[in-house]
């Protein structure tokens, strides 16, 4: 079963008189355990697409299935439920909760979204913090760690609920090259360990290279797809 199926997916933003076609008739299929990147110039529709896949927004037309569920009409509480169970998020600005420690930030989704029992919670949080190399900093607060470290914590938080996929919109945009590279590699390592798919968008040509499949967006349209190894086809 494919993880994501998009058929003629379109999204229009209407603001007053102006209608913006942010996504035009996108169709694609993404399989499980993938490491995928969407690239494209600013305004090409990357954020819009990730928002649709992440059930944060609904398409204007077309069908979108995530893990077999038609999410095109999902809204409100059912969307929140779906996100909590199936999707992990990594944000450009890390978005850790400042009043919670590193450990508590990772624990948060298990506590507030999924109601996982205490023992299970602890073992999952600790093992993930270990995997992302943040176990030593577990009692620090977000204000006390670097950007790269924050994003590693965010990776752990996105994975802790064992979602079907993790979405990351420009996860490295606020990081220097070296750190960006390291974060992408950690994401990849986590994907290999957990079998959870990662989809990220980026501007950064260097980190793009780490993706297994790269989709290129231009003006809201799918302009290309290339798999690792250089083969490029539309």
């Amino acid at each position: 079963m494919s993880l994501i199926e998009a058929e003629n997916l379109s999204k229009q933003y209407i603001s007053g008189e102006i209608t913006i076609d942010a996504l035009k008739d996108l169709s694609f299929v993404i399989g499980p355990a993938s490491f995928i990147s969407f690239v494209g110039p600013s305004g090409s529709g990357k954020t819009t697409l990730l928002n649709l896949i992440g059930c944060l927004d609904t398409p204007t037309s077309g069908v979108l299935r995530v893990s077999g569920t038609d999410v095109s009409q999902l809204g409100g509480k059912s969307a929140a439920d779906f996100r909590g169970k199936n999707i992990g998020f990594i944000f450009q600005d890390f978005n850790l909760i400042p009043v919670l420690s590193v450990y508590e930030n990772v624990e948060y989704p298990l506590l507030m979204v999924q109601n996982t029992p205490a023992g299970e919670r602890q073992s999952r949080v600790l093992s993930l913090l270990d995997s992302v190399g943040m176990i030593e900093q577990k009692d620090k607060y977000p204000g006390q760690i670097s950007g790269g470290q924050k994003q590693r914590v965010a990776v752990a938080r996105a994975l802790v609920t064992r979602p079907k996929l993790v979405l990351a919109d420009e996860p490295t945009a606020n990081l220097d090259h070296k750190t960006a590279y390291m974060v992408i590699n950690i994401m990849k390592k986590m994907k290999d360990e957990s079998g959870i798919s990662f989809i990220f968008s980026t501007h950064d040509q260097k980190v793009v290279g780490e993706a297994e499949i790269i989709y290129t967006l231009e003006d809201g349209e799918l302009a290309g797809k290339s798999a690792k190894g250089g083969a490029r086809h539309v």
């Binding site: 929140a80 439920d81 996100r83 998020f89 600005d93 909760i97 979204v113």
Partner: peptide
Amino acid sequence: VREIGTIAAIGTLPKK
């Protein structure tokens, strides 16, 4: 606001 957006995005229900 952004914190609220974050916790809402990761699936925290409005009630919570």
